[in-house]
Design a protein around this nucleic acid. Sequence first.
DNA 1: AAGTGGTCTAGACCACCCT
DNA 2: GGGTGGTCTAGACCACTTT
Lengths: 248, 248
Amino acid sequence: MKNEKMVIDKNSFIPPYYQLAQILEQQIRSGQYRPGDTLPSEAELSEKYGLSRMTVRRSLSQLARAGLIYSEQGKGTFVSRPRLDRAVFVMEEFHTEMAARGLVSSVRLMEARVVPAPQKAATKLQVPAGEKVLYIRRSLLADGEPMAYDRKYLRYDRGRPILENELQYQALPEMVEKHGEVLPVSSQMTLQATVLNEEEARALRVAPGTPAFLLEQILFDNTERPVGWGWCLYRGDRYQLSSQSPIF
Amino acid sequence: MKNEKMVIDKNSFIPPYYQLAQILEQQIRSGQYRPGDTLPSEAELSEKYGLSRMTVRRSLSQLARAGLIYSEQGKGTFVSRPRLDRAVFVMEEFHTEMAARGLVSSVRLMEARVVPAPQKAATKLQVPAGEKVLYIRRSLLADGEPMAYDRKYLRYDRGRPILENELQYQALPEMVEKHGEVLPVSSQMTLQATVLNEEEARALRVAPGTPAFLLEQILFDNTERPVGWGWCLYRGDRYQLSSQSPIF
DNA sequence: AAGTGGTCTAGACCACCCT
DNA sequence: GGGTGGTCTAGACCACTTT
């Protein structure tokens, strides 16, 4: 096992803080430092690699953000135990996701009406039951094949005419802004596993009973007021989520 | 609209970099700076709040990590447009999840055998087909009720006796370590929506056809060698994932 | 040329932990 | 008290963008 001291190349295009982070990461992954081990102190690393302490700290904080190490004030910096029991799944917006798969995505508007808010929608949108809201149903397609089925209730404060091509092509946030005259700034989503009923299966052109992801979404404006609510169903036979490593 | 200059309280227990981050965040969320707007330059903020540029940069990088702002070299720092179309779901380990819900979790070992690796398992574990591997089936319970059904194949390099209580109570990473004598350091998971077949439904004591999350997991050691593979089924009627805001 | 963010330094003081 | 990490400063040089 070669134990020779790695050095920082100050003429490299790679900044020193990044070089040191790579060196330490390699030493951890190779087992030179094992989970629970204490890393050299910041002062030691600073001295050893000829960097200022601030630069060393930047390397360490990068590794800490990635979950590889953690620090305790007064005690030291330690190698984390691997957390295999925790998964992070990122669900990208439909068009982004399909583009990444090399598919051409499109949207088919199935329905867009101003309706009296049903009880559940009124509750979620915090409007009186029966208040006029915008209800839309859309089919999200990849290479012409339905992949997801989106149903949403949106606040509809002003009597602004609905332009069909806006609904066809715009992402939901812009739609809400156009029609409710407010900009949604935050959202809350839950993901469930479900099976499609007859109507949903018909919309997605699959058999009833097919498994699906159910994504429920609530949109809020900057006063925490809900401005949109609904669900999007993703075909379970075409959709899966992969765990992502923490960003580095 | 009060436009009076907020100030940093240097005697506060809250560090200045955090105070400035809070001030800027409030100004963004209140709409004082809107998406796309340019924030004051680092030099201006430094002068205005009486902080060094490094401290100002720390505040800004915290907001950038949270996704509220972003910087472009030579141009400036800008307020991000809200990304409502992207959801991050975190799936915690079973015991952690149940404890958070206030439930008492337990594990029931249903089967643990050394078997010749089936084709699929051999491929995933990168061992010859028919090689001896450890196969386990476990039921994960909350307050005595089955919530998840876990099936895994593990490499089994040494002829070490299986201690049943280890399988009962230990998390998977430790199990792999004990029996394969290697420490898994990374994993790869995919999440799918599915419906339970008869055997799975029986294990979870629900009706066949019930929706479920299917979590497939591959564990790797530090040489990228797969040491474990299998699936865990989570009852769809009891399990849902909620989107998390980016860490701040 | 002037303004911006990106990186780095060499110090400093503090809070915390251990012995 | 000596070692650790947490925070902050006042400069510096650089790369990039805009004027």
